[in-house]
Structures are given as C-alpha cells and as structure tokens.
Amino acid sequence: MSSYDFDKADFNAVYEGGDLLRGAAIKSVPWDIGEAQPTVVELERAGRFAGEVLDIGCGPGDNAIFLADLGYRVTAIDAASAAVEQARQRARGRDIEFAIADATLLTGYEDRFDTVLDSALFHTLDAAGRRRYPVALHRATRVGARLNMLCFADVPGGMPAPLAVAESEVRDALIEAGWAISLLAQTEFAGAAAPMRTFFEKAGSHPELDEKGRTRLPVWLVQADRMAK
C-alpha cells in the first residue's frame, strides 16, 4: 500500500475521467452507484432526518436527490467542483441548494441545519481535518441537530489505513466537538466494483459483492446529536 499517496487523492479529477490515486487505475467514481446508499434509505425510514438537511460531501448527488424527492429541504456541498456540477445536472428540476465548500470550515452556514448526512466524507480527511470537521459541523447546526455518518471502519476486510478509521478516533473527534453519540456500530457501504479492481488487487483485498455486483465495505454507522456548548 506504500505505492499509494492518499494525501494526493484528486477527487476533482476522478469525476472527469482522471486518476483518483496515482497507480490505482481508478478513473471513474467508485462511490457512484447511481442511487442512494442503502443505509441512507434505512436511516430515512427510521426517522433520522428532519428539518433542514445538509448532505456534506454530496458526490454525484444521489443521496440528496433521494431526500429531496421525499420533501426534505436539502443543501448539498462538496469540495470537488466537478462533483457539484454532476450533482446539479443529475438533480435538475429539484429544489436542492448545491455549493462548493470546505467541510472543515463551513463558512456562511452557521446555526442553520437540523440534520447532517455524511456518507463517506470523514475518512477522506487528514488527521487535522478530522478534528476540525466536527467542530465546523457543530457551528453549522442547531442545538439538538442529528448527525448520520458513514466512514470506513478499521476492521478486518475493510479499506486500508489511513482510509479506515479506528472507532476511538471517530468517537473522540465527535465528543470533543460537542456531539453526543447515541449509536456507533458497524454496517456496510455499497460501492462500484469495477473502478476499484486494480486498487484491491494491489491491496490484497477481496471485498464481498452484493446481489447487484457492488462491493460491500465495512463502515462505521454513527448517529449523534448536537449538544450546546
């Protein structure tokens, strides 16, 4: 795995057919499954969304579209301009606010959101970013806001470090930023298998596939509530 420099991952390039990681041959978006993440659907059915929703690290927009189609007011942001443009095109005709923004700052979004969805953003940040990010979320949300987060889990059969995150790192970062964790459990993230073939071969990883031929990667499912500081 030393051949991959995760600090130089180019999230903008992969949306334009370029390399996400040098040498990994990832030239299409591996988290683009063309529909909302199954766990996001389950979270909505369980009543985990309310009020004004922030989809942070929205990618190609399918989770935001799913929520907007159910009547939620959704703001979807991503640091990659190409991702935001693709999401806008995919969501055409829907009332979703899209923006390019730094998730570790969230300038201009203070005290705004009632629910946050993070579907595979946290683990893409470096160590410093993983500390700043939940603080920024705290500023951008109202007291009692709900956080629903999926991030790669540091467990057997999962993604390699530093993409896989230890449970203690997730827990410490959120608690220190003023989030009360109500659930931290393991579940699965569905991904497109084809773009990751070379990556997994070099990593010596053989993830299971679901009935649709998508990778089943272990992630932490985190549910937390924003506390007043």
Rank of each mutant, 00 (worst) to 15 (best):
M1G: 14
M1E: 09
D5N: 15
K8W: 14
F11Y: 15
N12E: 09
N12Q: 09
N12F: 15
E16W: 08
G17N: 11
D19H: 12
L21S: 04
V29P: 06
D32L: 13
D32M: 08
G34V: 13
E35P: 02
A36I: 04
A36H: 08
A36S: 15
Q37Y: 06
Q37C: 06
V40P: 08
R45N: 15
R48Y: 08
G51M: 08
E52T: 13
E52A: 15
C58N: 03
G61M: 09
L67W: 12
A68R: 06
L70M: 10
L70C: 07
Y72M: 11
T75M: 03
D78G: 01
A79N: 13
A79K: 01
S81H: 10
A87W: 00
R90T: 14
D95A: 13
I96R: 03
E97P: 02
A101Q: 13
A101K: 01
A103M: 00
T104G: 12
T104D: 07
L105N: 11
E110W: 04
E110S: 15
D111C: 14
D111P: 11
R112D: 00
L117C: 02
L121M: 12
H123L: 08
T124H: 07
L125G: 14
G129M: 06
A136W: 09
L137D: 07
T141P: 06
V143L: 14
N148C: 13
N148L: 11
M149R: 06
L150M: 08
G157D: 09
G158M: 08
P160C: 05
A164D: 13
V165G: 04
V170Y: 02
A173W: 07
A173C: 10
L183F: 12
L183T: 11
A185T: 10
A185Y: 02
Q186G: 12
Q186N: 15
E188G: 07
F189W: 14
G191W: 11
A192E: 14
A192C: 15
A193P: 10
F199D: 03
G204C: 01
D210T: 02
E211Y: 11
K212H: 00
T215R: 12
P218G: 03
V219F: 02
K229I: 07
